Amino acid sequence: MTVRLLTVVGFAVALCAAMPAMTAGATPPDGDAARTDIAKGTTETPVSITTDGPTTLIVQSLVLQPGASSGWHTHPGTELSVITGGSVALQTATACAPVTYGAGQAVSIPAGVPHRVVNESGSDAQVVLTYTIPVDAPVRGDAPDVCAN
Rank of each mutant, 00 (worst) to 15 (best):
R116I: 05
A24D: 15
Q105I: 01
G53W: 01
P54L: 10
A12Y: 08
T78P: 02
S69F: 02
T78Q: 03
A143W: 07
V139T: 04
C147T: 08
D52H: 13
G10F: 04
C16Y: 07
G77D: 04
V107L: 13
S69C: 00
S87I: 10
L5E: 09
T78I: 05
R140L: 04
Q60A: 11
R116Q: 14
A106I: 06
A21E: 12
T56H: 06
P29H: 08
A18G: 14
R4W: 06
A33S: 12
A21L: 15
H75S: 09
C96F: 09
G31L: 08
E120D: 15
T92Y: 00
G112V: 07
V59M: 14
V3Y: 07
E120A: 13
G77S: 00
E44F: 06
G31C: 09
A137H: 07
H75W: 08
G71N: 01
S123I: 08
L64R: 03
A12L: 14
G25Q: 08
W72D: 01
A103D: 01
L5A: 05
G104A: 11
A14S: 13
R116W: 07
V118G: 08
T132V: 04
T50F: 05
N119G: 02
T45D: 04
S121T: 15
T84L: 07
A137D: 14
A97R: 03
A14D: 11
T94F: 01
G122P: 05
D124N: 12
V146C: 03
I38A: 08
M1I: 10
G53H: 01
M22P: 06
A125T: 10
I49Q: 03
D37L: 09
G41W: 04
T78G: 01
A34M: 08
T94E: 08
L15V: 13
E120G: 12
A125S: 12
P29L: 09
K40G: 12
P98K: 11
